[in-house]
Amino acid sequence: MLWKYFRIPRRFNTTGTSSLFDAAISEAKPLKSSKPIPTFTTGNMRTSPQKLNHLARLIRNMTLDEAEAQMRNVLKKRGLNVAQMIKRVGHVLNHNYNQDKKEYYIKRAWVGKGAFLKRLRIMGRGRHGVMHRPHAHLKIQIEKIKPKSDIDELLKKFKKDLFIQVQDTKPVYPIHPVWSSKPWKYVTSDKWVDPKNALIRRRD
């Protein structure tokens, strides 16, 4: 049954001869098997973009489970809204795309500026000013976790073996003996010139 995988142009009549049917099959375009996964957003929230950006920086390059647990335990007011959005992403992947949320991670997370409402600010001596009620929203883009190949493991092992820390087995002695606490002073006394007292720090 090729009809479910191909879209037949309308100008061809499938009830005609075999030549028309072959031409329709040759020009037919295969249907896409999966829809692209869109970006997800929290919607406008009553917070400033600067405060919300701290949460966006926190969940980047995290898996969905790690990001949700992090947002539920963070000491920020809007962390719960971000956690609910990440939970909704997992349900959408399971219901609409038949995917497991454990196979995805947050590739990008950025903050958008919403409406800044202007309100009256009452001050002393009959004066007034303007205050702003900021709004912002957070968007995330998810991507499937790529399995690590053997080449990545070999490169990681090569970089690890390339830099080897050398342990010193002998104590380090100063090249020039410490003859005085004032190295710019020329000492001519016998107690400083004596090699037995070369490594002993003394005060003049």
Rank of each mutant, 00 (worst) to 15 (best):
L52G: 02
P30A: 10
L2N: 05
V92N: 07
P195M: 08
D150N: 10
L154F: 13
K77N: 03
W179E: 09
L20K: 11
P177N: 02
D190M: 04
Y97P: 11
A28C: 12
R78F: 00
K51H: 05
N73Y: 02
D194R: 02
K102E: 10
H91G: 14
A24N: 04
A23Q: 15
M62H: 11
I106A: 03
W179S: 03
D204S: 14
H176L: 10
N13E: 07
Q141F: 08
L117C: 02
E68Y: 05
D204P: 15
H54S: 03
K159R: 05
K170M: 09
G129P: 12
N44W: 13
M85Q: 01
S33F: 14
K182Q: 13
S48K: 03
M71K: 01
W3T: 13
W3A: 14
F116I: 04
L162P: 00
P30S: 09
R11P: 01
R60Q: 09
G112M: 07
V166F: 12
R78T: 03
Q70C: 11
E143N: 14
A115T: 01
R72M: 11
K170Y: 07
D22I: 14
D168I: 04
R88V: 14
M71H: 00
I164A: 11
N98A: 07
I86R: 00
F12C: 02
V178E: 14
K113N: 07
T169R: 06
W110C: 06
A69V: 03
I164T: 13
L93F: 08
K146S: 07
R133K: 12
V92T: 12
F163L: 12
V193F: 01
Y97C: 07
K160A: 04
P30N: 06
M131T: 12
P174K: 14
F6G: 00
V166G: 09
A28D: 06
K196L: 14
L162N: 04
V89F: 11
L64V: 07
A198P: 09
T41E: 10
L199V: 06
P174A: 11
E66C: 02
F158S: 10
K107R: 13
R133W: 08
Y173A: 06
P30W: 07
